[in-house]
């Protein structure tokens, strides 16, 4: 990757992929936003709670919502379910993220409406796009 946005970060001609971050760790939100924007995605919002995430997902219609599984007292799985069942957000791609182990969570991710899981340390524009490309039509 270079200093210019990755061409792959543009799912539609001329328009970068838009994403919303939902995570209760402010330090992670800042780092993730910087990285993803630098790699060519457009971060349209960052939410610290499930409720705020739900609200922003409805109002800003991002292509992808990145949802932390452990949202303080809330569950990222519940938010994913809520986004999938709400008519306004049902078309949005949800990707679950966590610092916890992928193989511990694999089964729960499988059972959720999310398209997939990303370990937080492996977050990048490329990995998000790859999951976005694999969403079911």
């Amino acid at each position: 990757m270079t200093g210019t946005p990755d061409r792959a970060a543009q799912p539609r001609a001329g328009a970068p992929l838009t994403c919303l971050l939902v995570d209760d760790s402010p330090v992670f939100l800042t780092a993730a936003r910087t990285l993803l924007e630098r790699q060519g995605l457009r971060v349209v919002g960052a939410a610290g709670t499930a409720e705020e995430g739900y609200r922003l997902a409805r109002s800003r219609s991002p292509d992808v919502v990145l949802v932390d599984i452990a949202l303080g007292t809330d569950s990222g799985f519940d938010l994913a379910q809520r986004l999938a069942t709400d008519a306004t957000t049902a078309g949005t791609t949800v990707v679950l993220i966590s610092t916890r182990s992928e193989d511990d969570l694999a089964e729960l991710v499988q059972a959720s409406p999310a398209v997939g899981f990303l370990p937080k340390a492996e977050l990048s524009a490329r990995s998000v796009l790859s999951l976005f490309g694999h969403r079911e039509p």
Binding site: T2, G3, V27, F28, A31, T34, T99, A121, S124
Partner: peptide, 20 residues
């Protein structure tokens, strides 16, 4: 863990800015 992950992402972000 959150801080370490954030540092790793910050490094990747810096990496992305390095001239080719």
């Amino acid at each position: 863990q959150q801080r370490l992950v954030s540092l790793a992402l910050a490094l990747r972000a810096a990496e992305a800015k390095v001239p080719a």
